[in-house]
Design a protein around this nucleic acid. Structure first.
Length: 492
RNA sequence: GGCGCGUUCGUCUAGUGGUCUAGGACGCCGCCCUCUCAAGGCGGAGAUCACGGGUUCGACCCCCGUACGCGCUACCA
């Protein structure tokens, strides 16, 4: 088998679509699995769609996901340049070859004529509106005359009618088209730029691409590409058309129905490991029950033969779950680094009282992490789910107050406060013994103290075991909070 | 409209003619654990395998048709 070279060839729209990520990922996995090369090529042949900074965004999103390419803009490579807008001369050269062969021809038709033609064909109920090859019969001298007179032109593919165009696709097996349904596609636009169809074929050949792995939306135009390969006498790459990513209503995944850019998910706090893992499973599986994957495991197990044919709905619930799974698998040290960044980006960095939060020692944060690790799905939830580790509660969960803070509670808390006061640098067990003792003295269940205590110390009704909370915030802070709760809650 | 592609639990999927009265995962529900919330364990509901014809002793798996969905139908990619 000849060496594997694949490419991800996005148009620079300004951001990386998750569908694009999936396409890029499958290309990447296939390349790595087969010791091949992964090339990034930017398809920027539409000057009307130029977006400032789009290429940089694309590259940084790709890199964030861990998809490093072997050749591409910035990176370079032997078969560049990798920006199609810098390859115009190349297309000019190759299109001439086609014109000489008669497989492409100049067309001087105006927009008006094209428009009228289409209208007429529709009126006559043609099965499909197609160019009528009007300019194919232009004499050589006429063409030269037009060219000399600078009449705007395009160059079209000369599709020979009544032919079967057949190609193989790894995902869809054999696909067959009738050339009568293939239009004389514009190859070179009047501004001199190539269309996607032409540039993509020329570049894939010149860049020695072995496998074209792309979205299903390209399946219908593949016959045009095949015609081009054949006309040049170039070997066709192996095609693999990937199923589409869908909205919950099964339409093509779009901005209207939620986030669609990789950077959106990044901003929301999703881990790249989770996003990549999730997206990999949308349309592929190894045939077993494994669902949790790291990148190296994906590479090891990936194969195009196991890619599905039908579209997959992007289900955020499952992404959430995978994010939690990946987060829990992180080491506490990694989590510490992430938590610090989260704190830096939180309200604490601007709040005057936030200073001490920023300066919390590693040892403290590490304790918070062990206590909360099983209870968070996102790093930011360390702050939102257990704010009490960072600041004393300023309000108390209403339903918990109603349920746990009875008229006798303040006195009981006072008693507990006094018991705790006798402790000296208590560990978890000391707090527990002290509380149970107090409960016994008061002749009540430990729960009658535990729940109000949790409320007093955290302001909420959920979280790690109370004693864990107490140890982390410390005896002094515990007492302060009990005291504050007694005063504040009774006032309500 | 034409052409192409697709169709297994709500969602992602396993399944390549008998092992399928269809398996797993997410989500949902219940139980256990338990000071709460998670995590974990156990269990449950949930798919007449889009529908209709064939082929076959036998079809989720093969063939044909229909329906529905999606894609393409640009001097956009």
């Amino acid at each position: 088998m000849k060496s594997v070279r694949v490419r991800f060839a996005p148009s620079p729209t300004g951001y990386l679509h998750v569908g694009g990520l999936r396409t890029a990922l499958y290309n990447y996995l296939f390349a790595r699995k087969n010791n091949g090369k992964f090339v990034l090529r930017i398809e920027d042949t539409d000057r009307n769609r130029f977006v400032e900074g789009a290429v940089e965004n694309l590259i940084s999103a790709l890199k964030w996901c861990g998809l490093d390419f072997d050749e591409g803009p910035e990176t370079g490579g032997k078969l560049g340049p990798y920006l199609q807008s810098q390859r115009l001369g190349i297309y000019q050269k190759y299109i001439q070859e086609l014109v000489v062969k008669g497989d492409a021809y100049y067309c001087f038709c105006t927009h008006e004529r094209l428009e009228a033609l289409k209208e007429e064909q529709q009126k006559q109920k043609f099965p499909q509106a197609k160019y009528d090859k009007h300019c194919l019969s232009l004499s050589k001298s006429r063409i030269e005359e037009n060219l000399a007179n600078r009449i705007p032109f395009v160059i079209r593919l000369n599709v020979v009618p009544n032919q079967k165009i057949i190609f193989d696709d790894i995902v869809r097996s054999r696909v067959e088209f009738d050339s009568n349904n293939v239009d004389d596609q514009v190859l070179i636009k009047s501004d001199g730029y190539p269309t996607y169809h032409f540039a993509n074929v020329v570049d894939d050949h010149l860049m020695e691409i072995s496998h074209v792995i792309r979205g299903e939306e390209w399946l219908s135009s593949t016959p045009k590409h095949v015609l081009l390969y054949d006309s040049f006498g170039w070997e066709r790459p192996i095609f693999a058309h990937l199923p589409l990513l869908l909205n919950p209503d099964r339409s093509k995944l779009s901005k209207r129905q939620g986030d669609v850019a990789v950077e959106d998910y990044r901003a929301k706090g999703f881990l790249k490991e989770a996003l990549v893992n999730f997206v990999a499973l949308l349309g592929w599986n190894a045939g077993d029950d494994k669902e949790f994957y790291y990148m190296n495991e994906l590479i090891e197990n990936f194969s195009l033969e196991r890619v599905n044919k039908s579209g997959a709905v992007f289900d955020i619930e499952k992404l959430n779950w995978l994010n939690a799974e990946h987060l829990r698998k992180k080491s506490n040290d990694d989590l510490l680094t992430m938590l610090r960044i989260e704190i830096l980006n939180s309200q604490f960095s601007t709040l005057p009282t936030g200073r001490q939060v920023l300066n919390l020692p590693d040892a403290y944060l590490l304790k918070v992490i062990s206590a909360m690790k099983e209870r968070v799905s996102f790093v930011k939830e360390y702050l939102s789910n257990s704010p009490y580790f960072f600041e004393a509660p300023s309000k108390y969960d209403e339903s918990s107050v109603l349920k746990n803070w009875k008229s006798e509670t303040p006195d009981q808390m006072k008693k507990l406060y006094e018991s705790f006061a006798k402790l000296n640098t208590p560990v978890k067990e000391d707090f527990e013994a002290s509380l149970k003792e107090t409960a016994a003295e008061l002749n009540i269940d430990a729960g009658k103290l535990i729940h109000p205590l949790r409320l007093a110390v955290s302001g909420m009704s959920s979280g790690p075991g109370v004693y864990d909370i107490l140890v982390i915030i410390g005896l002094e802070e515990t007492q302060k909070r009990i005291d504050k709760a007694i005063n504040t809650i009774s006032v309500i």
